[in-house]
Simulated scan of single mutants.
Amino acid sequence: MGNVVSLQKPPESEAGIERLVGLVSGDMARVNEMILSRTGSDVQLIPEVAAHLIESGGKRLRPMLTLAGAQMFGYDGSRHIKLAASVEFMHTATLLHDDVVDESDMRRGKAAARMVWGNEASVLVGDFLLGQAFKMMVEVGSLPALDVLSDAAAVIAEGEVMQLVTAQNTTTNEDEYLAVIRAKTAALFAAACEVGAIVADRSADERGALRSYGTNLGLAFQLVDDALDYSGAQANLGKRVGDDFRDGKITLPVLLAYRRGDDDERAFWKRCLNDRQSSEADLDRAIALMATHRALDDTIARARHYGAMARDALEIFPKSDYRQALTDVVDFCVSRTY
């Protein structure tokens, strides 16, 4: 395994998501019941594959954001439960599809569903979950919420295609990469937050603020993921250090190290990523080059920048336990090691 880099954490690294979990725990139990009921099918393979991923220990951050987005305004109905379950189903479907596209062997420390049941089953069960998500959205009866979530689904798919275009291409620039993660990751965070405000019948300004919060939180979340892949904390994610490197993925740490390197270093990155000719020794060198050019530190710095923007988006709301919980989530995402 390559030499790993220990990422320095900011002072707020003690913050977690405990406050958010506590605030939405009652509604989250209802969401979990909804998730289990909507994965039922007479086709036995469907609940088996869905349960494999749904029960594998994910934090379910996105549906919690939907619940908090409604509860912070005092919403006391039940429509946010189905919307939160829809968000989680969209996320789970994306993971099933991603693992097939990326040919991933592991997901959250367990064998990826495609390794157990095959690519075809993973894709089709992902499609089933998307269908269930949209069915619940329709049942909620909110056209604005349906518009936001359906738009997010289309944007996520666009992001997947954009990633295929930029895959193993070291000429990708930072703006192009940010466009990919804005679509693939940030779009669902943004939608998850905004539909909470929609179901609570809040103003366009409040909806926009939560959408901005979610977008910037998602960007920060993904950038930290990029850095973690080359750090010693990666084992806690259920993945080996350097899986992105082995897969030839172009992430921000790679782009920064490539741009800042000399001709010999750029030839190295092209051989390993463009041509997919790499070894474990090459991973050692890749991590060393990232350290030389501060690629990981600067990736985390960019994540902190988007995290600050997410915090600022919350400033229009009065101080409350919910606002503080959403602020804690930013700190957690930026400083997390898992």
Rank of each mutant, 00 (worst) to 15 (best):
Y338T: 15
S279V: 00
R246K: 12
V4Q: 15
N32T: 13
A220G: 15
K239I: 02
H91L: 03
L289W: 00
R271A: 04
S122C: 00
I198Y: 07
D331I: 03
I35D: 10
V199N: 05
M290D: 04
L188G: 11
M115S: 15
Q324K: 08
V148P: 11
A257M: 12
Y306V: 09
Y338C: 14
D262S: 02
E158G: 11
S335Q: 04
T185F: 07
V180G: 05
V330S: 02
L217K: 12
T39K: 12
I35R: 10
N32L: 13
A267N: 12
R276M: 14
M34D: 04
R323T: 08
L130S: 03
A227R: 09
S279P: 03
Y338S: 15
T185D: 06
P11M: 08
E160P: 00
L129V: 03
M72C: 07
V138F: 07
S278D: 08
A190R: 14
A113Q: 13
H91P: 02
D225N: 14
I316F: 07
L252K: 02
D205I: 02
D282W: 06
L296H: 07
A233T: 11
E103F: 10
R266W: 09
L83Q: 06
I250S: 01
K249Q: 02
M136G: 06
R114E: 10
N3I: 12
A257K: 11
A121Y: 05
D225M: 12
L67C: 05
V49E: 04
V241K: 02
D201Q: 10
A84M: 14
R259K: 13
D243V: 13
V329L: 09
L296V: 04
Q44H: 10
D76C: 07
R240M: 09
Y230C: 11
T66H: 08
T185E: 09
V224E: 04
R114P: 07
S231I: 05
T251P: 00
E14Y: 14
R311Q: 14
I287H: 09
G77T: 01
L314R: 00
C193P: 10
T92S: 14
A303G: 04
E160S: 07
R240N: 11
P63A: 09
V140Y: 03
A167K: 04
Q222K: 10
H305R: 15
G57R: 01
Q132W: 06
A325H: 03
D175F: 10
D205M: 00
A152G: 01
R240Y: 12
L67M: 00
G2L: 06
R38F: 09
L289I: 02
A220D: 06
R311H: 15
D151K: 15
G307A: 12
S86N: 01
R202H: 07
A111P: 15
E174R: 12
R207A: 03
M28V: 02
L255F: 01
K239R: 02
T185I: 04
V138W: 06
V165Q: 08
D151H: 14
M136R: 08
L273F: 02
K184R: 06
G26C: 11
A68C: 12
Q222M: 08
T39Y: 09
Q8W: 02
S279R: 01
E103K: 15
S278L: 14
M162P: 01
L124D: 03
L217M: 10
A154F: 11
Y338D: 13
